[in-house]
């Protein structure tokens, strides 16, 4: 697990690598230009390559932002790919009000926030029990739970949609929350278990001597210590759940109940070739996760590496 390590030893790789640039031409007694000019050239080359790559990567994002502020007439007259000849925020109003993105965004939040809280709550409890107590079959339990999360969701789609019908929650947001919690929890247990396992046993012993019960140890001792992992998983699971399409269209049917990802597909059908509205809808749908990413970038990257089994 490289959870906390990812951000730390920056200078370790930096030092020798930079020395490499300077040392490389020396032993070969190369017909190279003087040292300084060589490294300056390299730096320029690097920034050119990396800058070009970044520009290429950001181009679609810039394009969608530009498209979302053009008028429909402009797009119809000049094409989606042309330079903008207009500027308006009206497409956002259309997507937000007429396109139902407002309702959809509320639905997304109503699903995502409880799902993140419930799954991490449940997962941290299970991880606590499995990592801090000698339960029978704990390794097997852990892997069974992880295995459930690795299943291709396709095998579950039909039964889950029928199950929610039987429960009478088909087409309700509860069904979406339920299946997202059930499907995600195994992975979070696995990651949190790896993290909690590394907390020294003495800390727990001290709490036991002070007369703390399991609940107090969990709530007062282990959970605060697991905060970095919880933060990383929160950032990560927020985007996963918020961005989900498959589960939403499996257990929901009514347009007004769809979360924002699924409603984008509806927008695509409703505003065919009105690219300004579709672009504005995409911007609205992407804004929350981009905000989470920019705000919690460090946790986010740590979270991706947390899940990596070595």
């Amino acid at each position: 697990m490289t959870a906390t390590r990812t951000t730390a030893p920056v200078s370790g790789t930096d030092g020798p690598a930079r020395r490499a640039d300077e040392a490389a031409p020396a032993p070969a007694a190369a017909p190279r230009s003087p040292l300084l000019r060589g490294s300056a050239l390299r730096t320029t080359g690097f920034h050119l390559t990396a800058g070009l790559l970044s520009a290429l990567w950001l181009l679609p994002i810039v394009l969608v932002l530009v498209t979302s502020t053009r008028t429909f007439d402009d797009i119809a007259a000049h094409g989606v790919g042309s330079w903008p000849h207009s500027f308006t925020f009206d497409s956002f109003r259309q997507a937000w009000v007429d396109g139902g993105q407002q309702r959809a965004l509320i639905n997304s939040v109503l699903v995502t926030v409880p799902t993140v809280l419930i799954s991490l709550g449940l997962a941290s409890m299970a991880a606590f029990a499995l990592s801090r107590y000698d339960l029978p079959f704990r390794r097997v339990l852990l892997l069974v739970m992880l295995g459930g999360n690795l299943l291709p969701p396709q095998i579950l789609l039909i039964p889950v949609s029928k199950l929610s019908e039987v429960l009478g929650i088909y087409d309700r947001l509860y069904a979406l929350i339920g299946v997202q919690v059930g499907f995600g929890v195994g992975f979070y247990v696995f990651v949190l278990h790896g993290f909690m396992r590394a907390i020294p046993g003495e800390i727990q012993q001290a709490a036991v001597i002070d007369g703390a019960g399991p609940w107090q140890i969990y709530w007062r001792v282990i959970l605060p210590l697991a905060r970095p992992a919880l933060a990383a998983l929160s950032a990560l699971s927020f985007t996963w759940i918020f961005n989900d399409l498959l589960w939403a269209i499996t257990v929901l049917r009514t347009d007004s109940r769809m979360p924002v990802t699924a409603s984008l597909i509806g927008l695509q059908g409703q505003y065919v070739s009105m690219w300004n509205v579709i672009a504005a809808g995409s911007v609205i749908a992407a804004a929350p996760t981009v905000a989470v990413f920019l705000r919690f970038q460090r946790h986010f990257v740590a979270g991706l590496n947390l899940g990596a089994v070595k």
């Binding site: 970044s54 394009l63 961005n243």
Partner: peptide, 29 residues
């Protein structure tokens, strides 16, 4: 540079698809 390459990871695949759909249009970029 790292953030630029990483940014698309946080988009939903649907939003990603719509962005590219506009680029792929006959009169697109």
């Amino acid at each position: 540079y790292r953030a630029a390459l990483f940014l698309p990871v946080v988009f939903s695949l649907v939003a990603t698809a719509l962005v590219w759909q506009a680029m792929y249009q006959p009169d697109g970029l």
